[in-house]
């Protein structure tokens, strides 16, 4: 798995590539930790390049979401593939996160 970070004004775009499971999600959590430490609180997580995600990937997203929502921050998701949408639906997290088809739509929503 690879994680790239880009800035779009005040928004941090985190682009994830590869499977997100219990062996790789700690790297994503560490990146989130680093960004929170830098005071970032507006996130777009681009999952276009993620063909597989398990509950540890979900946990990383929820952890970030809870932490930034304590302040005025937010986490928006985009590019979720059909094959990983089901985990969001079963856990009802599709009702918690704002989910967009494209990165541009997610950025524009802030």
């Amino acid at each position: 798995m690879q994680v790239d970070v880009k800035k779009e004004g005040d928004i941090v775009v985190v682009v994830v590539e590869g499977d997100l499971d219990a062996s790789t999600s700690p790297d994503l959590r560490a990146k989130f930790e680093e960004l929170i430490g830098q005071g970032e609180n507006q996130y777009v997580i681009d999952l276009t390049g993620v063909p597989f995600m398990d509950s540890s990937g979900i946990a990383a997203m929820v952890n970030l979401f809870k932490r930034v929502r304590i302040g005025a921050g937010d986490v928006k998701l985009c590019g979720i593939r059909e094959e990983i949408m089901k985990i969001f639906q079963l856990t009802r997290l599709d009702r918690v996160f704002d989910i967009f088809d494209t990165r541009a739509e997610a950025i524009a929503s802030f």
Partner: peptide
Amino acid sequence: EPDLSEPQEGGYGVFLMHNL
């Protein structure tokens, strides 16, 4: 079972297996 009314950071694994 996880409380689905609130986002959780754990406890989904067995729940998912049963639902899938």
